[in-house]
Simulated assay, not measured.
Amino acid sequence: MFTGLVETVGTVTSLTALDPSTSGGNGTSLTISDCSSILSDAALGDSISVNGTCLTVTEFDGQSFKVGVAPETLRRTNLGDLTTGSPVNLERAVSATTRMGGHFVQGHVDTVATVTSVTPDGNALTFRLSPREKSVLRYIVEKGYITLDGASLTITRVDDGQGWFEVMLIAYTQERVVMAKKQAGDGVNVEIDIVGKLVEKSVVGYFEGTVGKEGAPAMLEKIVGRLVEEKMASLKGHQS
Rank of each mutant, 00 (worst) to 15 (best):
L18A: 07
L30C: 00
V204N: 03
M168L: 14
R138G: 13
N26H: 09
A171R: 04
G27M: 05
S64I: 02
R75Q: 12
I32K: 01
F65P: 00
L5C: 06
G122H: 11
S21Q: 12
E7L: 12
L79W: 01
Q63T: 15
E214W: 05
S240K: 14
G52S: 10
Q239T: 09
G10M: 00
R226P: 03
V158E: 01
S86R: 00
E200M: 11
E221K: 13
T28N: 09
L44I: 11
I194T: 15
A42N: 07
I140K: 02
V112G: 06
G10N: 00
G107I: 03
R132F: 12
V199S: 08
L235V: 13
L153F: 02
K231W: 07
N189A: 05
I223E: 05
I192F: 07
L137D: 07
F165T: 01
P120A: 15
V50I: 05
E91G: 06
G68C: 10
V9M: 05
E72Q: 14
G62S: 05
T114K: 06
D160M: 15
T97Q: 15
G24T: 07
V69G: 00
V109T: 11
A233D: 04
A70L: 09
E7F: 09
G68E: 10
G209F: 10
R157K: 14
V199F: 12
F127V: 01
H103D: 09
T119H: 07
T173Q: 09
P217S: 10
R226F: 13
S135W: 12
T98Y: 10
